[in-house]
Amino acid sequence: MDIVDFLSERISEDEAVARTLLGDRTVSKSGAWYEQRLLLECEAKRRLIRIVETARQAALASLVSDPGQDPGWIPQSLEWLEQSLNALALPYYDHPDFDQDWLRA
């Protein structure tokens, strides 16, 4: 499974749990605050994934579009982007679909 697909599925699961808990009238005010915070964190992660994926696609397009160009910066950039996604996946390390290769920093 691709890390972006993995993250998207986990974030959707987190969001569904938060929405379910927010609908529970027995949840305290602090619990509701936490669930609202979780929803915002889900959105922040989605935005970050879009940014990273856009940067990754731009780096790959640059590599393909101008083969004569010195691509020295591209591999390093792609490594940073991969590390960013790996960091986002860390909280889900115990999920059965988690790839242990994503633990490397």
Rank of each mutant, 00 (worst) to 15 (best):
1 M>R: 07
1 M>F: 03
1 M>I: 08
1 M>V: 11
1 M>N: 05
2 D>R: 03
2 D>C: 00
3 I>M: 04
4 V>Y: 03
5 D>H: 07
5 D>F: 04
5 D>Y: 05
5 D>N: 12
5 D>I: 05
6 F>Y: 06
7 L>N: 06
7 L>K: 08
8 S>L: 10
9 E>K: 14
10 R>V: 02
11 I>D: 00
11 I>Q: 00
12 S>Q: 07
13 E>Q: 08
13 E>W: 01
14 D>R: 07
14 D>T: 03
15 E>L: 05
16 A>R: 11
16 A>E: 12
16 A>G: 02
16 A>H: 05
17 V>A: 06
20 T>G: 11
20 T>I: 05
21 L>V: 07
23 G>V: 07
24 D>C: 08
25 R>S: 15
25 R>H: 09
27 V>Y: 04
27 V>E: 13
28 S>A: 10
29 K>I: 09
32 A>E: 11
34 Y>I: 14
34 Y>E: 10
35 E>S: 07
35 E>V: 01
36 Q>W: 04
36 Q>E: 14
38 L>D: 01
40 L>T: 12
42 C>S: 14
43 E>S: 10
44 A>G: 07
45 K>H: 08
46 R>I: 01
47 R>E: 10
47 R>Y: 03
47 R>F: 03
48 L>A: 12
49 I>M: 12
52 V>C: 04
55 A>Q: 12
55 A>M: 08
56 R>I: 01
57 Q>R: 13
57 Q>G: 09
58 A>S: 12
59 A>C: 08
59 A>V: 02
61 A>Y: 02
62 S>I: 00
63 L>Q: 15
64 V>E: 12
65 S>W: 01
66 D>E: 13
66 D>T: 11
66 D>G: 02
67 P>T: 06
69 Q>M: 15
70 D>I: 06
71 P>D: 11
71 P>M: 06
72 G>E: 09
72 G>P: 01
73 W>R: 09
74 I>V: 15
76 Q>C: 00
78 L>N: 06
79 E>N: 10
79 E>S: 11
80 W>G: 09
81 L>V: 02
82 E>H: 06
83 Q>G: 11
84 S>L: 06
84 S>W: 00
84 S>D: 06
85 L>F: 00
85 L>P: 00
86 N>F: 11
88 L>H: 00
88 L>W: 01
88 L>V: 02
89 A>T: 03
91 P>T: 07
91 P>N: 09
93 Y>V: 15
94 D>W: 04
95 H>W: 07
96 P>N: 01
96 P>K: 07
97 D>R: 13
97 D>M: 05
99 D>H: 10
100 Q>V: 10
100 Q>I: 07
100 Q>H: 03
101 D>A: 14
101 D>E: 11
102 W>T: 02
102 W>V: 03
104 R>E: 14
104 R>I: 08
105 A>P: 02
